[in-house]
Design a protein around this nucleic acid. Structure first.
Lengths: 339, 339
DNA sequence: TTAGTTTGTGTTAGCGGTAACGAATTTAGA
DNA sequence: TCTAAATTCGTTACCGCTAACACAAACTAA
């Protein structure tokens, strides 16, 4: 059943004994084409399963109607959920999406960027790898007039770029405030890698909530970890080291890390384990299966982050916003209290 | 910093006072071009950040070096892990990957297929939606000479297609055998939606393990559910309804569903709860956080499934295997016994 | 009747590359 | 010294599609 002659406009034109341009215009519903002619062409096209060649159109139109996304990985539900928001809105507006994972590796991120550049994407949405310090591979896009929107993970020091972020300050503030309102005075904070930009914002949310509610800050109650379990455990050990200053609550920068912490605390039979109340960023669906679940989750609304990123990107593509007029969009978090 | 004149071959040629073809051949390292000329061209190209336009190349070459993937969704770790296998091998061979989610919706699957067809992907890897009965939108590809490999979810009745599957029969057999070897005689089986093709294979694995080990089969110990929690609970109620025929072990078709089952059994304070041993398909990372974890997991090796799919696809693209010579590849599961 | 409009279709150039073919220059062999 | 064979680069057609422009036929108005 394999056709050897591809069905092109030219092929249709020959079959119909018309010119290619008439066929093209008929298929694109040009007003200058006779209705009867349009019908004939469109019928022939569907009979022969004509599929326009996107490469040819891209070449001619100088746009691809493709949006590129670069993100660290697809195993993190934050990212997969954010893609959902991007895809929805992109598809509605006639754009397709190419997703590329960097696996948090700068080299792979550069490869992905170059690939997407060659593919002449109309715009790029990117969450940078944790090692990205140099941005030459991403700056190329703007140099070619292709807008770039950084989302979530972004070059924090750089103001000359478009950003869409979760309002992680507000999320952490709200969580801390919630714990204070429940009577906690010793609230520990377990932060993430200091290279990732939101780490600092979250800490500020924590600090500000303490201040605004006259809860004294103690440096002993703050520790940092990364995505490694061992480091998390040693951070937790430090937080719970001083019997005079024992935390009764914990805010963690990411839920799986919080689960490691909870698991450890239980494994050592912490005397007041049942009284410790925890909150982490994420709102993982697995929480319902845990025996000692966090009291609440900070829902980061990844779909909304993704949707805001693509909305901004499309405005930039359509020149509704000047590419040099750098935007910063914040998406609020929501505290989900678990039954 | 935005360049208004795009850097094309023509532009380079004018700068260098050479012809486009010389520039093209120099960049592609043709042996007929003088070494010194090549050096000049390549330096100029990198100075001006020349990026070849993929659309133009695709149009000329009649291939895109893009592989399309259609899958139900990215929230299921089986699929995201399988993508990893595909991407790795595709990238190594100079192919890029476009991922498109169907969200288990036939209409979206058709849209994705048409989009990928217009993009002239060189090959397609697809896990069909649970509602896909008609395959016209996928058959188009083969009609145009573009190979399609079905993976995991595939049209079970159709032999005229390429398939790469997890050996779900073997996985379920092994799990059942493991439980038998641990002395269980009453092993319940919780199956998935009957429309999904692997459901039947898994059941056969279960049945055959029983037979081969002279464990009597009881229809009371078999129930089916889908991805809905309520249905899972009512299935579990049925399985544990008869006090004369109470299961001591359980094999479930997917881990999150198994977790729902475990949670329910514990919530009703099942008298022998601690003695019940469970196994599910998946090997979710969350298992380590559970208090009553399954005794083992059936690791489906999604990365390997993905890798086998792309390997087969590339062989088809390269005509190392005839497109009509339909292949079926099985990837074995592995039983992972926990702690 | 003649000129100006309207309507419908064809001609053609160009998007950015590739590569077959031709042509000019240099080198080698007799 | 002269011819044949390399070596190196340019000319050109083409991939599939779009759209500006040209153009012919039919229609309208004066």
């Amino acid at each position: 059943m394999t056709n050897n002659t591809p069905v092109t406009l030219k092929f249709l034109a020959e079959k119909l004994k018309m010119s290619v341009s008439t066929v093209s215009k008929a298929l694109n519903n040009y007003p200058t084409i006779n209705e009867y002619t349009k019908k004939r062409v469109q019928e022939m096209a569907s009979d022969l399963h004509f599929t326009p060649n996107k490469s040819a159109i891209n070449l001619k139109e100088k746009k691809s109607r493709i949006i590129g996304i670069i993100l660290p990985n697809l195993l993190d539900h934050f990212f997969t959920r954010s893609i959902y928001g991007v895809e929805q809105f992109a598809t509605q507006n006639g754009y397709n999406v190419i997703i590329s994972q960097s696996h948090d590796d700068l080299e792979k991120e550069i490869q992905s960027a170059n690939m997407l550049l060659r593919s002449r994407v109309d715009g790029l949405i990117v969450a940078i790898s944790k090692n990205t310090q140099d941005f030459a591979h991403l700056d190329q896009f703007e140099n070619m007039g292709i807008p770039v929107v950084y989302y979530t993970r972004n070059p924090s020091f750089n103001l000359s770029c478009h950003k869409v972020l979760g309002n992680t300050f507000q999320g952490c503030y709200q969580a801390t405030k919630f714990l204070i309102d429940r009577g906690h005075k010793k609230i520990a904070y377990l932060g993430g890698p200091k290279m990732i930009n939101f780490t600092h914002d979250r800490f500020n949310g924590y600090i500000n909530a303490l201040k605004d509610n006259q809860v004294p800050f103690s440096a002993e109650l703050v520790a940092y970890t990364d995505f490694d379990k061992e480091n998390t455990i040693s951070a937790i050990k430090n937080l719970f080291a001083n019997p005079e200053n024992m935390p009764t609550a914990l805010v963690a920068f990411k839920e799986p890390i919080l689960f490691d912490a909870i698991k450890y605390l239980r494994s050592i039979n912490h005397p007041k384990f049942n009284e410790i109340e925890c909150i982490g960023f994420g709102n993982t669906s697995f929480i319902s299966y845990l025996d000692s679940p966090p009291i609440a989750s900070i829902e980061e609304n990844p779909e909304s982050v993704g949707e805001n990123a693509i909305k901004l990107l499309l405005q930039l593509i359509n020149k509704e916003i000047d590419i040099q007029n750098y935007q910063k969009v914040m998406v609020d978090c929501k505290l989900i209290v678990h039954g």
